[in-house]
Every structure is written in C-alpha cells, then in structure tokens.
Amino acid sequence: MTATSVRPAGAGSEIASRPGGRRPRVAGRPRPAFAAIPFLIPALVLVGALLLVPFVSTVYQSLTRDNGFTSTFIGFENYSRLLQDPTFLQSLLNTVMWTVGTLILPVGLGLLIAVFTNSMRGGRWLRLAFVLPYAMSGAATAVIWGFILRSDGALNQAIAFLGFTPPASGWLLEWPTNTLVMILANTWQATGVTVILFLVGLQSIPPETVEAGSLDGATGMRLFWHIVLPQLRPVTIVVIGMSIANSLRVFDLIWLLTKGGPGGVSETLAVTMYRQTFIISDYGYGAAVAVVLAIIVVASSYAYLRRQLKGV
C-alpha cells in the first residue's frame, strides 16, 4: 500500500510548479514511506471490517454444515454438492444469459439513446423518458413489471384487446421466456445510467476533433465510427464493467417477479444464494454459492478492467 504513496518525479514537479501548489519539501528530511500509514488506517479499518472480515467468515462458513444454530466443519463437501446440483447449473446458465443480455441491451441501447439525443433538438426532454426509470428502486420496477407480465396482467390484456391470443404458457412461467422477459424489464430500468454515462463521455469529446472529421468529409456513421466512438472508449470501459457487475448480482427483480421459479428455473446465482441461505436455512451451502459468485465477479471484473485499462 505504501508504494502507491510514492509520487513519480514528473507528476510531482508538475504540481509543485503550480501557484499555490504543494510546498517544497524541507531539505535534508526525507519523508519516510510509513508516514502515510496513519492516514491509511481509517480506510483500512473500514475496508477490513466491512469487506474483508465478512468475506473471510463467508469462506469459512462455506466449509461448514450450518443451519443457523449449529455448525460443523465439513471441508469442501458443499462445493462438491454444488457441482452435482442441477438447480445450481441452471442458475449458472441463467447468470450467463443475464450477463450477455445486460451487455447487449442496456449498453447498446444506452449508447444509441445518448448519441441520438445528444445532438437532437429537444433531445434532453426525450432523454428523460429513458433516464427516469433509473431513479426507481429495483423493487418498484419489479412490482410494475409484475402487473404487466402476469397471466392476468396488462400485456396479456392488451394482446387480447387487439384481437390476438395471449401465449398459453404465460410470460413468467416457462424457461427461457421468463429469464428473457426479466432481462427486458431490467433493461427498461438499467438503460438510464448508461445513457447518463455515455452523455458525459460524449460531452467530453473536444468539438475540434469532430469538426476536423467533418471538414475531411466524414459524415453519419463514418464520423461516429471513426471519430466519436474511439473517443468514447474510456466511458465504454466503465459502462461495460458496471454492467458486468450489475448483471452478476441481479436479485430484487427476479425475486419479486418469479422467486427464481417455477421450480428454480429462473434463478441466478444471487437468487440461489439467498434461497439456500434464508429459505432453506442451509447457511453453509448458501455461503458456498456466495463464494463462487464473488470469485466470478472479481475475476471477470479484474480480467476485463486489467485488459481494457492498459491502453488508456
């Protein structure tokens, strides 16, 4: 940690040369590296108490048989059970579907909406329609979509009103339909934040570069593809990174719409973790799912960000 407090010489001189910048260091008194430690303690204590301790205790719990009252150490039995559990494998598959769906829909739509409403007249008002759902909680979103998607809900009533026959199987009852419609419901809510982030990115693009491109004869898609999009790369990295993390931890919408059912077919890892822990009271098994989920989230975020941030 102390290594991060050592400032490269170049950056230091840049700040020192600014009026009102850092005072010049007193000669002959080299600052020891550990001088930063006291300043790091509050952050270390917070991260340690709120993140590391619970994580270590969850890892330990995943190696036990724990019903909430008594706990016995059983080694890796919970993990071997996971591999043989069809619900867990289904839940893994659904999690992958959510990740892919969330990458394509909210990110793609967010980019489109941001680009079109950025240069469009009255775009800021149109944009509100897409951004406002983000202000709603996941639970409220689920309640609204519940009204729409249930067999006696608004969607089927609308289909019947228009003279068509609603699907007999219902929207939330069969896999993969239920997972797909829930990804769509999530898109409705999650697109808002990607729109905001892409707009920040778009507004940070120096107008000279776009002007230069236009003068050279680039228009439309060509201008977008070769001039605008490359300059959006930093923001895209953040948006995709957030989307991956969000899709892996999606819970509230699924829990309120299907409870992961029927029969566990629409569960994701976060739902499986909750159900095993708090419904079945198999705390050890639930903790094992939590550890697997944590590994996937950290590994995918690390791999993605490490690769992407190299070039920035």
């Binding site: 920040v200 990115g201 120096p206 300059q231 930093p234 923001v235 920035v312």
Partner: peptide
C-alpha cells in the same frame, strides 16, 4: 491527459450513481 480526465469524470459520475 485528456483521456484520463474523461475517465476520471466518468468514474466519478459512475461512483456517485452507484
């Protein structure tokens, strides 16, 4: 430096929203 500051702005916005 321009890219970094964009990243910083985006990061700050993302953090605030999150």
């Amino acid at each position: 430096i321009g890219r970094k500051s964009v990243l910083k702005r985006v990061g700050a916005t993302a953090l605030a929203l999150g």
